[in-house]
C-alpha cells in the first residue's frame, strides 16, 4: 500500500473514533468520480434532447392505448378466427421444422467450431458462420430470404433454421471445449475409431444439455416466428401486423394472449423434458 493510501485510511480510522464515518466511495479518485458523473449527465441530456416527441400525436394516441388495454379484457378470437388459425399453424410448423433442421445442421457446425476437436481451417469457417448468424437479427435475415425464396413460410423456416445454427452451434462448441477429456481418452484407448469416439465419449457428455438447449431454442423460435411475418416470411406475425394497422385491438389482444399462452406452455413442458433427460 502506498504511503498516501496508508495515511488516508489512518485518517478514516481517526475520524471513525470521533464518530465521523462515511461509506468508502466506489471510485477512489474524486476527480474521476466527477468526470464520470458529468459524462453520464451530458450523455443523458444529449440523448434525451435528440428524442423528438410529438405530444399532440401522443395525446391523440392515448385513447387508443386505453382502448388497447381494454381489449385485453375482451379479446376477440372469432372475427378473424381463420386468419389467426392459419397464422398459428404456419408459425408452429415453421417453429418445429426450423428447430429440427437447425439443430441437425448445428451439430456439425458446433463440432467444427470446437477448438479441441476440429482442424484450424474448419474451425475458422464454422466460427464465421456462427458470427454472421448471431449478429444479424432474424428479421434482417428474413428480408434477404424473402427476396430469394419468395413470400411464405419457407423463407421464414430457413431464416429460423439459420438463426438456430448460430445459437446452438456456439453453445455446443463451448460444451465440447469444456468436456471431460479423460473419458474421451479412455474410449480412444480401447482402439475406437473417430465415429466410435464421438458416439461413446462425446455424445453422452453433451447430449442432455443439447436436448435442453433445443427445447429452449424451440421456445425462442416460436417467439421469433411471431415477428418475421412482418416482412412477409409467414406466420402469425403477418396477422398481428394487419390487425394492429387496422386498429383491431381486440383481435391483436387475442393473438398476443395466444402467443403468451403458447410460450408458457413451451417453457413448462421444456422444464419437464429437461428434468426427464437428466
Amino acid at each position: 500500500m502506498s504511503e498516501q493510501a496508508q495515511a488516508y485510511f489512518e485518517a478514516r480510522q481517526q475520524a471513525a473514533r470521533q464518530g465521523q464515518w462515511r461509506r468508502l466511495p466506489l471510485i477512489h479518485s474524486q476527480w474521476l468520480r466527477w468526470a464520470i458523473a458529468l459524462g453520464v449527465v451530458t450523455y443523458l441530456v444529449l440523448a434525451l434532447a435528440s428524442v423528438e416527441v410529438n405530444w399532440a400525436r401522443v395525446a391523440e394516441g392515448a385513447s387508443r392505448g386505453l382502448r388497447f388495454i381494454g381489449a385485453f379484457a375482451q379479446p376477440d378470437f372469432m372475427s378473424r378466427g381463420n386468419d389467426i388459425i392459419n397464422g398459428l399453424v404456419e408459425s408452429l410448423t415453421m417453429t418445429l421444422t426450423s428447430t429440427v433442421i437447425g439443430v441437425m445442421l448445428a451439430i456439425p457446425v458446433g463440432l467444427g467450431a470446437a477448438r479441441n476437436i476440429a482442424p484450424l481451417p474448419v474451425y475458422f469457417v464454422c466460427r464465421s458462420i456462427i458470427a454472421v448468424s448471431r449478429t444479424f437479427q432474424e428479421i434482417i435475415i428474413a428480408i434477404l430470404f424473402v427476396v430469394m425464396f419468395g413470400f411464405g413460410p419457407l423463407a421464414g423456416m430457413i431464416t429460423l433454421a439459420f438463426a438456430t445454427i448460430g445459437f446452438m452451434a456456439k453453445l455446443l462448441a463451448e460444451d465440447v471445449e469444456d468436456l471431460d477429456w479423460r473419458q474421451v481418452e479412455a474410449v480412444r484407448a480401447t482402439g475406437a475409431s473417430w465415429w466410435q469416439t464421438m458416439n461413446h465419449a462425446i455424445q453422452p457428455q453433451v447430449m442432455p444439455r443439447l436436448i435442453g438447449l433445443s427445447m429452449y431454442r424451440l421456445d425462442i423460435n416460436f417467439r421469433e416466428s411471431s415477428v418475421i411475418g412482418i416482412v412477409g416470411a409467414g406466420g402469425i406475425g403477418a396477422t398481428l401486423n394487419t390487425s394492429l394497422s387496422r386498429y383491431e385491438y381486440d383481435t391483436s389482444a387475442a393473438i398476443l394472449l395466444i402467443i403468451i399462452a403458447i410460450v408458457l406452455l413451451c417453457e413448462y413442458s421444456s422444464s419437464h423434458v429437461r428434468r426427464w433427460t437428466q
Binding site: V89, E90, T93, M94, L96, F149, G152, P153, L154
Partner: peptide, 10 residues
C-alpha cells in the same frame, strides 16, 4: 409440418 410449409410455398 413440412407438408404444410410446402403447400404454402410457391
Amino acid at each position: 409440418c413440412w407438408k404444410v410449409i410446402s403447400d404454402n410455398t410457391m
